[in-house]
């Protein structure tokens, strides 16, 4: 009896609407983040992550309203990422009802930013998101949606971010993201062993066995997936049952 491994569906939000399909046919509006979040909650999601992919600053304001609406009706932890650059962005999301804020590029441009916001708001609400890609015999972090190399070693970076106060690491394999071929569990394992804080594995989930592998092979504390919950016929409940059947402790 211990801590359950978490399953976290991730929703891409553009200008306040969920984009990419969601499989629920019997909800009024599959683009409404509140309806989608409520449904994932009913299915037993352990947390929900919103990734704001809005391009313009003006439309970015809408993500705060999305969080506000969801937070008043869905009572599980909510994480928001995408475009978080200043302490004011973090504060706005927390005030809207987010429990955690994910920081990615802004941490790369200015690592002290992570110290600043963990000091001010607490480690428990700061997730550092890392996009990593294999380069020769190691992994490097990339920014701009995986297009821009930084030359920074991903494992060393994860360790540094944990030292700077990150409460969790959300690690996405750019090699696997969108491929449905499973997590990069060598990468996951390397980071899981390097950091004392929880690891959320992301990128590449195409079937339920991949979730099991992320925990058992990759050493992840939580698994994040988008498309298998949106498009395929898998529900969160099925995913949890599958993990439980394979000996993983989950919240059923």
């Amino acid at each position: 009896m211990g801590l359950a491994k978490r399953i976290i569906p991730c929703l891409d939000v553009d200008a306040g609407r969920v984009v990419k399909g969601v499989r629920f046919v019997d909800i009024r509006d599959a683009g409404d983040p509140v309806e989608v979040a409520r449904r994932y909650n009913e299915e037993g999601a352990d947390e929900i992550t919103f990734l704001d992919i809005t391009a313009t600053a003006h439309e970015r304001e809408t993500i705060a309203h999305v969080v506000e609406q969801v937070a008043s009706q869905v009572f599980i932890p909510l994480t928001v990422g995408g475009g978080i650059r200043k302490a004011g962005d973090v504060l706005r999301m927390l005030n809207a009802g987010a429990d955690k804020v994910a920081i990615n590029s802004a941490a790369v441009f200015n690592p002290e930013f992570v110290k600043e916001v963990t000091d001010r708001f607490g480690s428990q609400c700061i997730v550092v998101a890392i996009d990593a890609k294999r380069v020769d015999d190691h992994w490097e972090i990339f920014t701009h949606g995986g297009r821009k190399p930084t030359g920074i070693d991903a494992v060393a970076w994860a360790r540094k971010m944990a030292d700077y106060g990150a409460g969790e690491i959300l690690l996405t394999s750019m090699d696997r993201d969108g491929t449905k071929s499973g997590f990069d569990n060598h990468l996951n394992r390397a980071v899981a062993e390097a950091v004392p804080v929880p690891l959320i594995a992301s990128g590449g989930v195409g079937k339920l066995q991949h979730l099991v592998d992320g925990v058992q092979v990759g050493g992840a504390d939580a698994v994040l997936a988008a498309s298998i919950f949106h498009f395929a016929e898998y529900s969160i409940g099925q995913a949890k049952q599958y993990m439980a059947d394979h000996g993983i402790e989950v919240r059923l």
Binding site: M1, L3, P198, G219, D221
Partner: peptide
């Protein structure tokens, strides 16, 4: 140690009985 062979993580974050 956790069941994945790694030391338990701190913070204790998530759903426990």
């Amino acid at each position: 140690m956790g069941d994945n062979g790694l030391p338990l993580k701190i913070p204790h974050m998530g759903w426990s009985q």
